[in-house]
Design a binder for these strands. Sequence first.
RNA 1: GGGUAGGUAGCGAAGCGGUCAAACGCAGCAGACUGUAAAUCUGUCGACAAUUGUCUUCGGAGGUUCGAAUCCCCCCCUACCCA
Length: 313
Amino acid sequence: MNNKPVLVILGPTASGKSDLAFRVALMTGGEIVSADSRQIFRGMDIGTAKPPSTMLEAVRHHFIDEKEIGEPFSAGDFATRAAERIKEIQERGVPAIVAGGSTLYLEGLLKGFSALPPSDPEVRTRLMHELEQKGAETLFRRLESIDPEQARTLDPSKSQRLVRSLEIIEIAGTTVTALQQSPAAPSHDIDFIVTGLDMPRALLYDRINRRTAGMVRAGLVEEARRLHERYRRELAEGAVNALATVGYRELFDCFEGNMDMETSVALISQHTRNYAKRQLTFFKNRLNVVWLDSPLNESGIAELAEQLCCRIS
RNA sequence: GGGUAGGUAGCGAAGCGGUCAAACGCAGCAGACUGUAAAUCUGUCGACAAUUGUCUUCGGAGGUUCGAAUCCCCCCCUACCCA
């Protein structure tokens, strides 16, 4: 019934997505669907720049604090669940606003995935072991013999995509190349307006640097220490992807005596900048985004929010 | 004042007579990416022409040599040690 378009606000980290989405939600009485692979985990707050509780209380946010660290949740899960959730929201006659920067989550939701099988933890673990013992070369040659086309798209060094490609062969009994013949298509009929927040690179990097400093002031180190203690064993096994997150892994390194605190914090800024660059590359080259200048102050946010409201109501 | 170790491209760091515009790492820039994606991986990286090309570099100034980042001399800085 309510088939109004859904506003998507994406962009690199620290570009101001959350604030803008919050504003639009307030103005429209909408709810926010977070497309963020890390904010979904409880206990990862400061380092993921999760919206503060005041915002979470004022506007309903989905996919925030919904999982325990270590619980599986993937881009595929997000793509299907988020579409379901948006439908539910729309059925209540409420606008849904998607906001986030997790590249593959967004692509999955907006463009869908081919009919590839989900990852199987057992197969995955076995392949990772094999990778460690026999080396990437061996696995690469195997992939090359079964699915030369896919092999050509990746390089023989160690790569997640190599493992995933082999995993698919084991689970599905056929190759990625074959499965991707059926083009990716979204499994829903939601209409999206995809907007991206952009700003000069130097400004973005400056915002990132300052945000990192702010996180430290807000208690990031303590937060990381709690996680480090609680997930000591998982960290040793390197099994929990949620913990391989910028803002935490650098501090874990520090706690383990591999670097001093100053270096660690500098690296957080640096890795966040690197990440922002990767996001930008992905969004520009893979998704169809209408880019907007990111508002830099309160009144700018209000003004842009107003404009966006018009487009979805 | 004496001694020792150093000063190399944005930073760190190799090179120690030719094959050096100078290894490698980081940053930067560009890119890939179909279920771990804040992950994983690739290219490029003195300047300029942008395919083999030209020009200016290895603290500064001289010198030796066909040829120097690499050898010699003087000077300037830095670190540590002894006074």
